[in-house]
Design a binder for these strands. Structure first.
Lengths: 115, 115
DNA sequence: ATCCGATATATAGATGATCTATATAAGGAG
DNA sequence: CTCCTTATATAGATCATCTATATATCGGAT
């Protein structure tokens, strides 16, 4: 199912930070892993990810270092900082609150709500 | 808790359509009801809602009619059309798929995932 | 009588997240 | 040599939402 793009926005920073919780990763790898972990729901575009990563670096949520690959271009790895971890936890809380609230609106019709 | 605004965007059309499923409503009423139903999580602004409603009307998802109130300005009621109902169901499916996918990413860390 | 707040709708302009398109660069397949 | 995949990067466009402002009516306070 094609996801309505207007429904999905704003949470990519959360997801990227979450990926880095498991260990340092480079951009291309994050795109692939996000696709895999979400059962092919998230197709994060390179043009979205790299500016996002640069923004996270500016905010001090991640640090970056270059590492040669066996072949091809050198890879730019990103590492989650302590501040990034705190931001991640905040964003997770926000997401949960938001998802709960949407759930309440979608379930609790005024017409049939018990309470 | 203040919701991170960058986390929450894109689903207002879904929520507004959902509100109209229970019966015709006017704008101001939707703002209040959304606040109530979401336990004060969603504070939809008038400047967001009215353009959104006009857009839904243009798409044929809602129809509108004016009705005098006991006092104050006349109210503009919105009614969910058949097409609007179909759009609502699609958006609900999209939301569920999206929320599930985020959940999978947030829970299934590569570090500790059983599989 | 006038000003302010709540109700109620509306528009203009700004912000910010994401997308598309494009550019660079290295390696392997045809 | 050219194309596809890996890999990073930037510019410009799009779209949802916000802030600020405007209109109009009513009730309460000054």
């Amino acid at each position: 199912m094609e996801l309505d793009k207007s429904l999905v926005s704003g949470s990519m920073a959360l997801l990227v930070l979450k990926l880095l919780e498991d260990g340092d990763k480079y951009g291309y790898q994050m795109i692939e892993e996000l696709k895999r972990r979400s059962d092919d729901t998230f197709h994060l575009k390179a043009g979205t990810l790299y500016p996002l990563l640069h923004g996270l670096e500016e905010k001090g949520f991640v640090t970056a270092y270059e590492r040669e690959a066996a072949a091809g271009k050198p890879r730019r790895y990103y590492h989650l900082t302590k501040e990034g971890g705190a931001a991640l936890r905040e964003k997770e809380e926000s997401w949960n609150a938001y998802a709960r609230a949407v759930g309440r609106v979608l379930k609790g019709g005024a017409c049939c709500a018990g309470a």
